[in-house]
Design a protein around this nucleic acid. Structure first.
Lengths: 188, 188
DNA sequence: GTATATAATCTAATTATATTAGTTATTGGC
DNA sequence: GCCAATAACTAATATAATTAGATTATATAC
């Protein structure tokens, strides 16, 4: 049928993810670096990804799938506040483990990309279900999702961006923030 | 002494800010575009800014000064919860008015850049003073600053990034989030 | 007034990166 | 063995940033 691939899609994407995480920002990957890492010439990359934009898009899908899996795992068998706390910690752990990939995942998916949009919606659906078990439904739940995402994204993006430099325990800061928000949610 | 500048530093930086805001992301400005906008050749830009990195840095200083002025203005004559609410709304208004510049301002300043670090610290100092009037001091105030910044940055960065697409009032979402956080802060 | 130093701008060349076009070579199915 | 498919290649082009060095206009010293 064809010349056997030496590179599988998995190797390409995982190598790109590693580079992105080392740079701590996916917008800094270059095809030049990726090709060098894979021991092929730059134009050969076009057999695997649709240019730089395609690579970023593939990385985003890959990252969203990981975040989704981690979130599902975290809420397994939990409801209410415990489930929300578990989501919060899984989210932060993901951003710490994969800072470069994280920088892609939080961006809003382009509406014309069905796969990305679907993954993004699945995450929202999980949050919606968990909030339902926290007695939040309808518009209140939607406002709560926006708030919860803001809290999580705001903290981890400032944190991984190096904004919290003081010698003050970051876990403690995060826990206080999440607890204040969840307490406030339950008191409405 | 010298050939009179046709371009003042203000014109250069304000044109760059306008381009950055139109692109909604400062990382997408190019020297090519800026030079075209100013009717000079690209290399001539080097008389005004230290390359692309220098331009971004100058834009960051300019943006921080504006945010600082808006924040000072917002807290004028206010204390406690009112002052914190005013800061929140000024912060969000700034991000809406200057989305491109905002994307630069929230990044942690490189420690070796004294001017940037000073501006950044001034903002933190304002927050610290306002929180003191909210009965928060010492470590509690530092955790609260981290939380408050997370809340503000998280919401406006998701919002300006297009993450909140539903037909659900964003002002309402923001107000609920900020109020929940401020309520929680006062109950400790 | 004129000369000169200064700096703003320019052209030309270099470097880095992404992308496209077109070729080569390998391999699995027939 | 032949053929179709495709991964990988070389070569060329495009875009952007940057550096080197020449040119020019003008503010000030005299």
């Amino acid at each position: 049928m064809a010349k056997t691939r030496q590179l599988t899609p998995e190797v390409v994407i995982e190598t790109a993810a590693r580079l992105a995480n080392e740079l701590r920002d996916a917008s800094r990957i270059t095809l030049t670096d990726l090709a060098a890492e894979l021991n092929i010439r730059v134009p050969s990359l076009y057999n695997h990804v649709k240019g730089l934009d395609g690579l970023r898009r593939d990385l985003t899908v890959w990252g969203l799938q990981q975040l989704l899996a981690a979130t599902r795992q975290a809420v397994l068998g939990q409801v209410g506040r415990d489930a929300l706390l578990a989501v919060a910690h899984a989210y932060r752990a993901f951003a710490h483990a994969q800072p470069g990939v994280y920088s892609l995942v939080l961006k809003a998916p382009p509406p014309e990309d069905a796969q990305l949009t679907a993954l993004s919606n699945e995450l929202l659906l999980i949050l919606q279900l968990v909030l339902a078990s926290y007695n939040l439904q309808g518009e209140a739940a939607l406002h709560a999702i926006r708030g919860f995402r803001s809290v999580l994204h705001g903290f981890v993006s400032l944190e991984t961006g190096g904004a919290f430099e003081l010698l003050l325990d970051r876990d403690e800061s995060f826990n206080r923030l999440v607890e204040i928000y969840l307490d406030g949610l339950s008191k409405n």
